[in-house]
Amino acid sequence: MEQATVKWFNAEKGFGFIERENGDDVFVHFSAIQGDGFKSLDEGQAVTFDVEEGQRGPQAANVQKA
């Protein structure tokens, strides 16, 4: 698992990007966020996640709020 920071997340559209420590951004979809209830992330929030290869490149999976 990697630890990184949420760059931005649009709760209405259900997706955003996580900024990795190496500077690369990773796409995150609300369905990858672990937990119950409304799944959203806040800008600047610390998260841990795995990286999977998606249809359009790397994307976050198993996202957990740190």
Rank of each mutant, 00 (worst) to 15 (best):
E52K: 10
E19F: 12
E19Y: 13
F38L: 07
I33G: 02
G35I: 09
F9D: 04
S40G: 08
N22I: 10
K7Y: 00
K7P: 03
P58C: 08
V26R: 00
E21H: 12
W8E: 04
W8R: 00
A11C: 15
V26K: 01
G37M: 06
V26D: 00
A4G: 15
N10T: 03
A60W: 01
V51G: 01
A66H: 12
A4Y: 05
E2Y: 15
Q34K: 11
A4C: 08
E52W: 10
D42L: 14
V6C: 06
F9L: 04
G16H: 01
A60Q: 01
S40R: 10
E53K: 10
F15A: 01
A66R: 12
G23L: 08
E53A: 10
H29V: 02
A60S: 04
A66T: 13
H29T: 00
V26C: 06
F17C: 08
Q64F: 08
F38N: 08
Q64P: 03
K13E: 05
I18K: 00
Q34R: 09
A46F: 13
D24E: 13
Q34Y: 09
G14T: 02
V6D: 04
G23K: 09
G37T: 06
G23D: 07
G23A: 09
G37D: 07
G57Q: 03
G37I: 06
D24Q: 13
H29C: 08
R56A: 09
Q45I: 09
T5Y: 14
G44Y: 05
G16F: 01
E43T: 14
W8T: 00
A32R: 03
V6W: 00
Q55A: 13
F49Q: 02
S40K: 11
D42K: 15
A60C: 00
Q45V: 08
F38S: 06
V63H: 02
A60L: 01
S31T: 13
F17P: 03
E19R: 15
G16V: 05
A61G: 08
D42N: 13
S40C: 15
D42Q: 15
I33D: 04
D50N: 14
E52A: 10
P58I: 11
R56E: 06
Q45R: 04
D36S: 12
M1C: 13
Q64L: 09
E2V: 12
A46W: 15
V28A: 01
K39N: 06
K13C: 11
G35E: 10
F38M: 07
G23N: 07
E19M: 15
V51W: 08
Q59H: 09
H29A: 03
L41D: 00
V26N: 00
E21V: 12
A61W: 04
V51Y: 09
W8V: 00
E43P: 15
A32I: 03
F9K: 02
N10K: 03
A11V: 13
G44S: 05
G57E: 03
N10W: 08
F9A: 04
K65M: 10
G54D: 06
V26W: 05
A4N: 03
F49A: 03
A11Q: 11
T5M: 09
I18F: 04
F9W: 15
L41T: 02
D50C: 13
N22C: 14
L41G: 02
K7D: 05
Q45T: 09
Q45S: 08
D42T: 15
F15L: 04
N10L: 04
E52N: 08
D42P: 06
E21T: 12
Q45L: 07
V63I: 06
Q55V: 13
H29M: 04
F38W: 14
N62T: 05
H29Q: 03
D24N: 12
Q55N: 11
Q64W: 08
N10D: 13
R20C: 08
S40N: 07
F38D: 07
E12Q: 13
E43A: 15
A4T: 04
E53G: 07
G16Y: 01
G35Q: 10
G54P: 02
A11F: 08
F49Y: 08
P58D: 04
E2P: 09
G35M: 12
V63E: 01
V6I: 09
R20W: 08
D25E: 11
S31L: 08
D24G: 11
V51T: 07
T48S: 10
D42H: 15
A32H: 06
D36N: 12
M1H: 12
V51K: 05
E21D: 11
F9Y: 10
V6R: 00
I18L: 15
T48A: 07
G37F: 06
A60F: 02
R20D: 06
V47I: 08
E12F: 11
F9I: 03
G16A: 05
E43Y: 13
G14F: 02
F17N: 01
V6E: 05
Q34I: 15
Q55F: 14
A46Y: 13
N10S: 12
N62C: 08
W8C: 11
H29E: 04
E53C: 14
V47W: 00
W8K: 02
V28Q: 02
F38I: 08
Q55T: 13
E21Q: 12
G35W: 09
D50P: 01
E19G: 11
Q59M: 09
F27D: 03
R56L: 10
T5W: 14
R20F: 06
Q34L: 14
A60G: 04
Q55S: 13
G44E: 03
S40Q: 10
V6M: 00
A61N: 08
G14S: 01
F27L: 03
P58W: 09
R20S: 05
G35V: 09
F49W: 00
A46Q: 12
G54Y: 06
D42R: 15
L41C: 05
W8G: 04
K7G: 03
N62M: 07
S40H: 12
T48Q: 09
R56Y: 14
V26T: 05
V63M: 00
G54F: 06
D25R: 10
Q3M: 13
T48Y: 14
D25Y: 12
E12W: 11
K13N: 06
N22G: 11
F15T: 02
Q59K: 09
Q64A: 11
I33K: 00
F9E: 05
F9Q: 05
F49L: 07
F15N: 01
W8H: 02
K7S: 05
F15R: 00
F17K: 04
D25L: 15
A32T: 06
F27P: 00
S31H: 06
F17T: 01
G35L: 07
A32C: 07
E2R: 10
E12H: 12
D50H: 14
E12M: 12
E43H: 15
G57Y: 04
L41M: 04
A61K: 13
S40I: 11
D50G: 08
K65L: 13
A66E: 10
T5H: 13
N10P: 05
A46D: 08
A61L: 09
T48F: 14
D50A: 11
G57I: 03
A61R: 13
N22Q: 10
V26M: 08
V63G: 01
P58Y: 08
G44F: 05
A60N: 00
E53L: 14
F49G: 02
F27W: 04
G44P: 00
Q59Y: 12
G14V: 02
T48R: 11
